[in-house]
Amino acid sequence: MVMVGVLGLQGAVREHVRSIEASGAKAIIVKKVEQLDEIDGLILPGGESTTMRRLIDQYGFLEPLRQFGQTGKPIFGTCAGLILLAKEISNQTTTHLGLMDMTVTRNAFGRQKDSFEAALSIEGVADDYNAVFIRAPYIERVGEDVHILATYDDAIVAAEEGPFLCTAFHPELTEDHRLAKYFVEKVKESKKSLAR
């Protein structure tokens, strides 16, 4: 069985753990850098991206996370996690892990009162997916190696680039575990090919 870590500095950690366990993988909460060695794939959960970045810096996670990304092990970022993965963030000069070639806009749909649920079609995953957007970002530009998986109102809200997967919404907040399963499959395949 593959082992998926959920970065546990802040945010919706428990929900991702539940979702991964429901998808046939083992899950652990990653709070220390050493734990990255134990896992086959990593989830960057939703939460407050500015807060997570402060904590990533304080605990020396930045370089280890970038290195983890370069090993080819899959990473799945949801909402704040998507912001952490992006190479560019609109209206700010600082970025975080910079692993996916895309430009994202924070709080792109507005404040909390504009947060919403909507039906989405996600390529290769589901065509009837109820997505929960909370003070969500969107992807406004993608590089040529980034594959767009879903759009909402012309904004890109899910994408994939090699081992990296990201969504602007929160798959962990519903009982629909199809995205988690999709990610677990990615982790299984990468474990097989990395072992060769």
């Binding site: 802040q10 945010g11 909390q112 919403f116 929960v132 909370i134 003070r135 929160h170 907040l173």
Partner: peptide
């Protein structure tokens, strides 16, 4: 179909604050 102000969206916002100050 778009829904704002649902329980999931309202409670979910607080879920994102977990572990925080």
């Amino acid at each position: 179909m778009v829904n704002v102000g649902t329980d999931r969206v309202k409670r979910g916002m607080a879920e994102m604050q977990k572990g925080g100050v």
